[in-house]
Design a protein around this nucleic acid. Structure first.
Lengths: 346, 346
DNA sequence: CTGAAAGCGCTTACAG
DNA sequence: CTGAAAGCGCTTACAG
């Protein structure tokens, strides 16, 4: 079965009626509709999306841009796959399909997005990994493509975003550590321009201040957000003269490499050195001693992202009048044993 | 800038000429082309894909279907993100874009694929996780959509596929173990109908036979392909009366749960019990003792998949006349310490 | 080298 | 309730 024309011919009715029947329009005789539906099912006919899109001016497809660079692959830890389910649960209500658009590692993310947007392959976009200055946000605003980001940015002063509660993470981690006697508290920060690094370092600085601890720039360890980066971070931490007694990690997988490097030096996490991890990753769950870290539901985040996005799309706005505001997504502390010891006062 | 019409009007030439200039046709005055290109760049004009697709009958998009079920999320371990880079390196040569199509967990994969294919959102498909009987293969064959699968299947007797060398893995693992004195060799197998389970068990059985060891069905441990499944597998292994001395795992992350359960019982991997893992996963790399397992390049697999697919697409066939055959993808053994001990003869 | 026109497969006002 | 027709944005034979 090629197209609607053939189907109409077979049924001996006009293509207009076939289209109306298929699209559930009310002004179709029920018997006619039944015949059309049966024939479509029989021949496996589904409307060609290009034809529909061209006519309707919308594709009914939402894009989720992801970066497939080697580093991202190593690190992504299924963040996107997790969010995807939540997104789809929202989109399914409106017969919207989600496609993931992987930006090749050798292509500039801005140019890639520009191309995808200009070709009108999607009606709206979800982007993540926002940079401190992120031209993609300007691009989407300018092109009037509805979008939502995972992560804040300095670009554009108002746009739809949801971001993790780095402030809360820094607060609770520092408080917990101070209560246990720690004063020399290190953190890791990404070496890239990704915005969350700035937010996290600033949150950490303020948390220290509230607890009367001076900010020491040498305790901010800048490394790649990867297992390897964790290894590197431990290496650097061990070299610091007045060695900190704890490190707070920004990225989930870092804990793996960090543990390894510490153990190589006979420094036992949770006994000789405290560690608080970031997001509770499945693959960090095996660590011994168990990692104290923060937890969140990727599915729920996906749902929130979907609702926020639709709240900004004229065609769906009405269903999401209560959504659309920016959200600081909370994380819950999961106490492990990696920071279980009390520090004896020196 | 809305469309080609506005651009043509601005330049005061016909839309046909604009189109030809933009598409690199030779029959365009160079000065005209320059002006068109400059204006397109200035206004950020890129041809609407629906218009192009409709006219040309192709979308220039290749779909990679992935399953985003909770289990898949837990397990995927970035297999797809890894393959993606390789695929894109091939597709980029022909200006083809790759999109990932995540099948919602509550939708039947067959119906999902049918819908995507019928709507003609992609020119070709890559599917994976092939089942022993997989109707998706019949569907794609019937609809004449070029495709390639990651994994063999009993459906259709000939179709383009690439599969991992489970036979080689079973062979080398068994041989290595037998050389070290093992006779009671267990394996894990997926509890689902995924085809690789059948292939792996059969390969294992033949490898045993070649080494004069009787196949014992009770040594085939059927568990979920997940970290949790590994835990479960260890649990079952420990209960077997005439306990095996080694287990060969089918899935990369199983090793994590398996190690944990063994250690909980005071059974030390690599000393009291041997383990050979499957694919070398980044997140299994931290295991102590280091896991003996198999390694492959996801990128290279992606390249091969891309080439095989294009070899089956009329428009690109000519460039890939040497490709297109089915491939058994080799894996290389990476010796760790999880199976390092010699078994003293009882 | 360029323009005018047809047509890809749909959906939808409009007329009846 | 149905049909005939317009038109979404492109590309491409065709004529000049």
């Amino acid at each position: 079965m090629k197209g609607i024309r053939q189907l109409a011919e077979y049924l001996d009715i006009s293509i207009g009626t076939v289209s109306r029947a298929l699209n559930g329009r009310p002004d179709v005789n029920e018997e006619t509709r039944r015949r059309v539906l049966a024939a479509a099912e029989e021949f496996g006919y589904v409307a060609n999306q290009s034809g529909r899109s061209l006519r309707q001016g919308e594709t009914k497809v939402i894009g989720l841009m992801i970066e497939s660079s080697a580093e991202a692959v190593e690190n992504a830890d299924n963040f996107f796959l997790g969010v995807t389910s939540g997104l789809q649960s929202v989109f399914a209500r409106h017969k919207l399909d989600l496609v993931m658009l992987p930006c090749p590692s050798d292509e500039d993310p801005y140019e890639y997005l520009k191309r995808m947007v200009a070709r009108r392959v999607v009606d709206a976009m979800i982007i993540s990994n926002t940079q401190r200055i992120d031209r993609r946000i300007d691009l989407l605003s300018w092109a009037k493509i509805p979008f939502v980001t995972v992560g804040r940015s300095l670009s554009a002063n108002t746009f739809p975003w949801i971001d993790l509660d780095f402030e809360g993470v820094a607060d609770r981690a520092v408080e917990r550590l101070v209560a246990r006697g720690h004063r020399r508290i290190a953190i890791t920060a990404p070496s890239s321009e990704v915005n969350l690094g700035y937010v996290f370092v600033e949150s950490y600085r303020r948390a220290l201040e509230r607890n009367g601890i001076a900010f020491d720039p040498s305790l901010v360890i800048r490394v790649k957000s990867s297992e390897q980066g964790g290894y590197q971070a431990a290496h650097e931490l061990l070299q610091i003269e007045d060695r900190p007694t704890v490190v707070i990690l920004i990225y989930e997988l870092m804990a793996i490499g960090l543990y390894r490097r510490l153990m190589e030096s006979g420094v036992m996490p949770g006994r000789d050195f405290a560690v608080i991890g970031f997001r509770d990753a499945p693959r960090a769950r095996f660590l011994r001693p168990p990692l104290s870290c923060f937890r969140m539901s990727l599915y729920d985040l996906g749902v929130a992202l979907g609702q926020t996005l639709l709240a900004h799309m004229p065609a769906y706005r009405e269903f999401y009048s209560n959504d659309g505001g920016n959200i600081i997504w909370p994380l819950e502390l999961v106490a492990g044993e990696s920071d279980a010891f009390q520090l004896t006062v020196v």
